[in-house]
Simulated scan of single mutants.
Amino acid sequence: MTAILTIHGVNQFDPDRAPAEAAARLGAVWTTALNHGLTVPVEGADVRMVYYADLLQPTGPVSQGAEGDLDHMSPEAAEAARHWAELHGVDLDQAQGRVLTPVRWVADAVARRKGLDRDAVRGLVARFFPDLVAYLHSPATRDAVQTRLAEAIERESPSVLIAHSLGSVVAYDTLWRHGLKVDALISIGSPLAMPDIVFPHLQHTCTAGKGSRPQGAGAWVNIADPGDLVAIPQPLTERFDKVTTNIRTGIGAFSFHKAANYLRNKATADAVARYVS
Rank of each mutant, 00 (worst) to 15 (best):
F240Y: 06
D225S: 00
P233Q: 09
A231E: 01
S159H: 04
I197D: 03
S187Q: 08
A193L: 10
I232V: 14
S212I: 05
S165T: 03
S212Q: 06
T237N: 09
S159G: 08
I223F: 01
V198K: 00
E154G: 07
A231G: 07
T174I: 07
Q234N: 07
L229A: 06
S165M: 04
E151I: 05
W220F: 11
P200T: 09
G179S: 08
G167V: 03
D241H: 08
I223K: 00
D196H: 10
L175A: 12
G227I: 05
L229H: 03
A184N: 12
Q203M: 10
L236P: 02
G218C: 14
L166A: 07
T237W: 07
C206T: 05
I162K: 01
T174A: 07
G209T: 04
F240D: 01
S159E: 11
V170W: 01
I223A: 00
W220S: 04
I232L: 15
L175Q: 10
I188Q: 14
E151T: 09
L236S: 07
T237K: 07
S187L: 12
M194Q: 09
D241G: 02
P195G: 08
L192N: 01
R177A: 13
G167W: 01
H164P: 05
G216M: 09
G167H: 06
R213N: 11
S168M: 14
P200F: 13
Y172E: 02
R155L: 10
P200Y: 12
V198I: 14
D241C: 05
Q215H: 14
P200V: 10
A208Q: 14
H204F: 11
E151S: 06
F240H: 02
G189P: 02
F199I: 11
V198D: 00
I186K: 02
V198A: 12
S212D: 14
G179P: 08
A193H: 05
L202E: 06
T207I: 14
L229G: 03
V170Y: 00
P158D: 01
L229V: 09
A224N: 04
K181H: 13
A219T: 15
Q203K: 15
R155P: 00
N222D: 15
R155M: 07
G211I: 00
S159L: 04
I153A: 04
S157R: 12
A219R: 13
A171P: 11
T237I: 09
A224L: 03
F199W: 09
N222I: 06
S187V: 15
R213C: 14
A208F: 11
Q234L: 09
G179Y: 08
G218A: 15
P200A: 13
G218L: 14
G211A: 08
P158K: 02
M194K: 13
V230T: 11
D196K: 09
G189Q: 02
T207P: 03
R239E: 03
C206D: 05
A171F: 05
Q215W: 10
L185S: 03
V169C: 02
H201G: 12
S187H: 08
L229N: 01
Q215G: 11
H204V: 13
S190C: 03
V198T: 12
S212Y: 04
S212W: 05
A231F: 07
N222T: 15
V170S: 06
L229I: 08
A193Q: 08
K210Y: 13
